[in-house]
Computed example of a mutant assay.
Amino acid sequence: MSEEVATTGWDAIDHALVKLYGEQEPKHYGTLISYALGGQDPLDGISAYKSETPIPHWHFVTYGFSELYEKELNNKEYSGFGFELTFRLVRSDDEEEPPAWALNLLQNMARYVFNSGNVFVAGDYLDANGPICLGADTLLTALAFTDDPELAKMHTPNGKVTFIQMVGITEDELEAMQAWQTLGVLQAGIEQLPSYVTDLARASLLQNPVVVKAVERGIEDDGSSTGFLFVDQLAWQEGKTGWFSKPSHIVQLGAKQAGVIRQLLRGRILKGRSLRLVGQQVTLTFQANEQAGYDVNEQEVIISLNKEAVEELCQKLVPQEGQFELSSLADVNFQILKTYIKDQQGTVVKTIG
């Protein structure tokens, strides 16, 4: 006689959803081969519920970021990664099956988490570098993360679980979140984005002057909450010394990130905070200081900027290929490289700079 498998974590999620949706039978999508046994999908399952408020939409909930069965990890405080993802997507009146792309998107998020170990919390954002629904005519090219408005944090026998909701956002909304804060931008646009339901057909929240003013006021008052940024195109080249030349070190940045970094420098350094750029080969930290300068060690490059240096750098830091130096920062040049955006097949679909 086989031993019955405990489903403590799974049951806790089910219980939360029964409280919200009663006897509604969800559309549930499981996996034939578990990820632990070599399957391609990390999540054990995804349920999709029909919700009518505040507008008709699909409410997706994942099963698999938390510990669904017996407690296995040593961390007693959290169940697994400590969260499950949710996603709310506009639903038409005659739609009886949720779109497959949304299920694939959630599994892709799981692959990212399982492979990197990075978790999502409310206030995070993620650039998809293209439509969140491949091939769709949509402005939504990134994702923001916030607490699900209807599913509260749970305390299960396996540890705490928070329901984190993904929200599709536009490129300029992402830049505003980087320059200020994710939750502030979402809250500013709540009237256009009720319950943060994703609609592939929507325009940018920043088309609304009220939202723009709220973002501008937030940046001015609070600065940026983005303390570090992963940058694909980031390099530090040591200057060569010679009898008749002084060493000139070079900071290389991609054109795609130039405008974002410019915004972050204003929102961080001018507020007395540091900004850490993390690349594949080097970490570059900008910090506020009365005197501009730089320091290099094995782990990172530290560039100190005063107000004059920040203003000069922000003026010159544009998404256009080229090289420049700062009058207030000796021996360091900045080089902006073209950025090539590629699709999943590796074909260049957009060039920046």
Score class of each variant (00 low, 15 high):
residue 236 W to I: 12
residue 177 M to C: 13
residue 231 V to Y: 06
residue 167 V to R: 15
residue 238 E to F: 02
residue 178 Q to S: 04
residue 187 Q to T: 11
residue 226 T to D: 00
residue 214 A to M: 01
residue 240 K to T: 04
residue 174 L to K: 11
residue 202 R to L: 06
residue 219 I to P: 03
residue 242 G to I: 06
residue 210 V to T: 13
residue 223 G to D: 06
residue 190 I to F: 02
residue 204 S to Q: 14
residue 196 Y to V: 02
residue 240 K to I: 10
residue 189 G to A: 08
residue 224 S to L: 03
residue 181 Q to L: 00
residue 172 D to F: 00
residue 195 S to W: 09
residue 209 P to Y: 08
residue 199 D to S: 09
residue 174 L to Y: 00
residue 224 S to K: 15
residue 240 K to M: 11
residue 200 L to S: 08
residue 235 A to D: 04
residue 237 Q to S: 15
residue 181 Q to R: 14
residue 237 Q to Y: 07
residue 193 L to A: 01
residue 237 Q to L: 12
residue 212 V to H: 01
residue 241 T to I: 05
residue 177 M to S: 11
residue 238 E to W: 02
residue 236 W to F: 13
residue 201 A to I: 00
residue 185 V to K: 15
residue 181 Q to N: 15
residue 238 E to H: 07
residue 196 Y to L: 00
residue 220 E to L: 05
residue 193 L to R: 09
residue 225 S to M: 03
residue 171 E to P: 01
residue 185 V to Q: 15
residue 172 D to G: 12
residue 229 L to C: 04
residue 168 G to N: 03
residue 240 K to G: 11
residue 174 L to R: 11
residue 187 Q to W: 06
residue 235 A to G: 12
residue 214 A to F: 02
residue 229 L to H: 01
residue 208 N to G: 14
residue 210 V to A: 15
residue 203 A to T: 10
residue 208 N to H: 08
residue 170 T to V: 01
residue 214 A to S: 08
residue 237 Q to M: 14
residue 166 M to S: 04
residue 184 G to Y: 07
residue 183 L to Q: 14
residue 200 L to P: 00
residue 232 D to M: 08
residue 170 T to R: 01
residue 220 E to A: 12
residue 212 V to L: 04
residue 237 Q to A: 14
residue 203 A to S: 03
residue 209 P to D: 12
residue 219 I to H: 01
residue 191 E to I: 03
residue 244 F to M: 11
residue 220 E to T: 14
residue 220 E to S: 11
